[in-house]
């Protein structure tokens, strides 16, 4: 039974749902976790992603786009929705959250190589740029896969990735990049 048939079956059959869930849960959870870096938020977002996906399974149409791309797209939307809700809440209660920019001098090379350090700078980028960087460098996805997820052509993905890297380079401390360049080369 191919995946198309399993998806069709999962609309009514719980065992087919189990198969899809077991296959894709970790991928989606990892992506969401990399994007939000908070276990509680990730749990909330992933719950919403799977609930929406499974309850709207009948709307999924197999058009040469993998099921995983559809799930990633829902996950991206849910992450955006989450941040939009949070932003609205902050505006409503008038809370000013100031996140201090930690100077590079206090961060070791090892710490700079960690994803948590990078995430502080990634999250300053627009949502779409964050997604494309995470897919390309953390999830190690090909341009073809990323283009399927975004529902755009590969050229478009290359352009937005290039722009996102430029923005990230500007925001990252120069010492970090130079240091890495020296160590790697």
């Amino acid at each position: 039974m191919n995946e198309q048939e399993i998806i069709a079956k999962a609309k009514t059959d719980v065992s087919a749902f189990d198969y899809l869930y077991d296959k894709y849960f970790l991928q989606i959870y990892k992506f969401v976790m990399l994007r939000v870096r908070d276990r509680d938020i990730a749990n909330e977002v992933v719950s919403d992603v799977f609930y929406k996906a499974m309850s709207k399974l009948h709307t999924f149409k197999w058009r040469s786009v993998p099921f995983s791309s559809w799930l990633y797209r829902i996950a991206m939307n849910e992450i955006s929705n989450y941040y939009r809700r949070e932003e609205r809440k902050r505006k409503l209660v008038g809370v000013l959250i100031h996140e201090s920019d930690e100077p590079y001098g206090s961060v070791t090379y090892e710490e700079a190589q960690s994803y948590d350090f990078l995430h502080k700078y990634i999250k300053m980028l627009p949502q779409r740029d964050q997604d494309v960087i995470v897919f390309r460098y953390m999830e190690k996805k090909s341009f073809e896969e990323i283009s399927q997820i975004f529902g755009k052509k590969e050229g478009y993905v290359r352009v937005i990735l290039h722009r996102a890297l430029k923005k990230l380079e500007q925001s990252l401390p120069k010492e970090v990049i130079e240091n890495v360049g020296r160590k790697v080369s």
Partner: peptide, 20 residues
């Protein structure tokens, strides 16, 4: 060089077993 930096980032493992 930012690409090289990103390629060398240590991606954290996730263990969502009970939640899953």
């Amino acid at each position: 060089s930012v690409e090289k930096y990103l390629e060398n980032i240590r991606v954290p493992e996730v263990h969502p077993c009970p939640f899953s």
